[in-house]
Amino acid sequence: MRRIRDMHPLSVTVFFVCVTMLAMSVSHPAVTAASLVLSMLLFTVLKGAKSIRTHILILIFFIIFTLINPVISHKGSTVLFMVNDTPVTLESLLYGLNAAAGLCSVFYWVFSFSAVMDSERMLCVFGLISPRAALVASCSIRYLTLIKAQYRRTKLSMRAIGLYTDGNIIDLIRGNMRVFSSVIGWALENGIATADSMAARGCGSTKRTAFSVKKFRLGDGIFMAAALMLSALCVACSALGSLKITFYPKTVLAPADAAGFIGIASFILLAVMPSAIETGVKLKWRRSMSEV
């Protein structure tokens, strides 16, 4: 087994898409709670001590999200207290709490995803759908750095003959527009040279191979298959209605049955997979290092 960030980007993407979609659509409190706890765990495992700032940020979000619903929605039958003659209900508070847990877990999943995927790995997946659009995307990432540098150079050049000043806001805007105009011309003209160099190397002559230094290994396949199977199981149980919850007028949970249990269990298994792999790999390395 390898660490998540070393796995093939496709299987990593499939996992995160599955788990995020489930976290967004299944609102059974057991699932949202598990999603929040396990996504937080994964992020902490991935980022270590650097994750604290994110935790604080998400905690603030969590509180805001929880409180929004009781403020704007007054449905529900159990009135907790009255504010300015409007009732604040237990049901709407519970709804807010559940929604906040779901939303914050989505944040965590998404942040973890960003932590293991850089733009190159992302484009590798995108390239499987549309090699050509992925090529355009990777070109534009490269051009962004070039354009930034050229913008800086042009600004200096223009400043040195008095065409760019930042004395007042009008001059500043006029100067920046002049620089931007020059940079656009530069980028388009030079782009033609890039295009010729691509054509000279056979771009557009046949269908492109999507070459990548990453190889799809057995482990990637197993991980992806497990993610897909567990998600399918969870979706099936949800479709049977066993993971249903209604908040209004009274909070009612679907009766606990086998399908509900399987659904929750499969989600937990799915969500715990990456953290387990990360920790397992770390322990294995530590052991083999101590043997050396």
């Binding site: 050509r132 995307a137 534009s140 051009y143 962004l144 354009i147 033609i192 054509a199 557009g204």
Partner: peptide, 21 residues
Amino acid sequence: GYEKKQVGTRRLVVTAIMTSL
């Protein structure tokens, strides 16, 4: 659909440049 179409290399690059702008 875009993948199937005939698109010149120069147009590809100009698209990339407008994107990066």
